[in-house]
Design a protein around this nucleic acid. Structure first.
Lengths: 113, 113
DNA sequence: ACTATATATGCCTTGACGGGTATATTCTTC
DNA sequence: GAAGAATATACCCGTCAAGGCATATATAGT
């Protein structure tokens, strides 16, 4: 199984997830909406399903795919460690980090670049 | 330039970003902390820098790398479209989505799988 | 049973990416 | 200016993933 990011690295897969964010969709609906060949859609859905990003139910010959938010929530969790860099109180933190820089720099000015 | 996700797909790069979340670091510090060969570190830093995830300043022969939160913030923004799937009030939304499913299914039960 | 529709899978080729090693570059110190 | 430290880059190679196309599978309708 691939990593969350590896799966999301593929633009078509992100497009599919974005589309599924509106409502569950059949393979054909995705194919038409995103203008991609059917085998391509099926293959990407396979990856997404194996990775736990989507799930499918059978509807006659159709398969209806819908989001499973778990993996995206993981991503949200991973991001948490960086949020402080852009969410309020950033100034204080950054000043703090600046102070943590190795002080071993009693150097004179470098010229270029 | 690569996509945000393509860059983050590499585990070593995520590790570097995670390390830089604590404080800015020199290449050597990263090399030792993450136990990876120096060329590997430099190459990943190159990718991260080109993609705008980090920036560097010169300190004698050293380069001090630090986070640039912009790209991660983009990621946060992208995630926003999915948050409703796991943050409060999810029940209501899901019920709503269920109602949006194509009603063209007056089918009898399928047996297996 | 046959045909049409919807979806999945297999094969093949191609291109991008990461690791490893060697080497180049930059700056400092003596 | 020669040597050493810190970092960057070039090259080669193996791997892996994505697209294109053909084909297989499943289900419905007649």
């Amino acid at each position: 199984m691939q990593s969350t990011f590896a799966v999301l690295a593929e633009p078509n897969r992100r497009a599919i997830l974005g589309f599924l964010a509106s409502a569950e969709q059949s393979v054909g609906a995705i194919e038409r909406h995103l203008r991609m060949p059917q085998p391509t859609v099926s293959k990407h859905l396979r990856v997404l399903r194996d990775a736990g990003f989507v799930e499918a139910t059978v509807d006659a010959q159709r398969r209806l795919y819908r989001l499973r938010p778990g993996r995206l929530q993981e991503l949200d969790t991973w991001l948490a460690q960086f949020r402080r860099f852009w969410s309020a109180r950033v100034d204080l933190l950054e000043r703090h980090l600046d102070r943590m820089r190795p002080e071993a720099k009693g150097r004179k000015g470098k010229r270029k670049k």
